[in-house]
Simulated scan of single mutants.
Amino acid sequence: MNDEELVRRIHRELADSYDEELELEIEDRTIEQLAGGVDAISEQDKADRRLYFRELFRLQAELVKLQDWVVATGHKVVILFEGRDAAGKGGVIKRITQRLNPRVCRVAALPAPNDRERTQWYFQRYVSHLPAAGEIVLFDRSWYNRAGVERVMGFCSDDQYEEFFRSAPEFERMLVRSGIQLIKYWFSITDEEQHMRFLSRIHDPLKQWKLSPMDLESRRRWEDYTRAKEVMLERTHIAEAPWWVVQAVDKKKARLNCIHHLLSQMPYGEVEHAPISLPERERHDDYFRREVSSEILVPEVY
């Protein structure tokens, strides 16, 4: 392979690496836009989309710097993402983790507690997911389930609910005293926007799995969730771990604003790395590559 061909292949590989974001972008476009082609998107929409990608890639580059700083300093970070169903929590989590090392930055998305976990101290099952030095953990929903869905759906008693509000601030202060930085985000959307997003999921066969019976019931109980959210923010907004509200009606703006704010919460800086040089591969006269049996080859359909 000559140098020109090598450079061309490297450029192609770089382009392929960014296609992942384009694939995620398709998820956010309506079926009408996809069916209508480019003409269905206005010039302003195209300009906004270019700006979004430019800023997203810039912020993701900063997230990589943040990751290096977290590892180098042994910092420990927990980020909670809360909000109504379809508020966009999963979308921003995808964009934060997209370019990062999963051994450094990982996501904890716990299912409903099993019979054994329901008999434990309420916070116990979350503790095992907390970070060690040089790690970032993103909770896609968290211990605040008790203040939200469990309260609204009647999955906890009044006593358990009140005990949560006595314990949660102290639990979080304890985490902060132990050296964990705790950042809490609430993604806020309107009644109309959630209605539209639920309808979009219903009519999109690739997204119908996102709608559980609990999600549909939450739609009916919009006002109950609003009251529960207001109480939660009021009673757990503490100096050591304040709540931050992300206006999330516009998904793309919400992602950029959240990542920009997250970066501002840590005094990270550029970490010096030793120059990387690719070593020459060793070659031996007695080495040969064996043929792969056709029986175990995956058919090349494409």
Rank of each mutant, 00 (worst) to 15 (best):
N2W: 03
W209C: 09
E55A: 08
L110Y: 09
V71D: 11
I238L: 10
L22E: 14
K46T: 11
L262E: 01
N2T: 01
E21P: 07
D45F: 07
I202Y: 13
K252T: 05
R283M: 07
S142D: 00
V246W: 05
R219N: 02
R289A: 14
G37N: 06
S178W: 06
N114H: 01
Q265W: 09
L182E: 01
E13K: 05
D39H: 10
A87V: 04
R84K: 10
A112W: 04
I183V: 06
L14W: 11
I31K: 09
R151N: 04
T226H: 03
I202A: 10
R220G: 02
T97F: 06
I183Q: 05
K76P: 01
A274V: 13
E280T: 11
L233R: 02
D45W: 07
Y225L: 03
R283K: 13
V7D: 05
L206T: 14
L216I: 04
D159I: 11
P267F: 01
V71K: 15
R201E: 06
F123V: 03
E43W: 01
F123R: 03
V64N: 10
F139S: 00
T97C: 12
N2S: 02
A61R: 14
V176I: 08
Q33G: 04
I79N: 05
D191L: 13
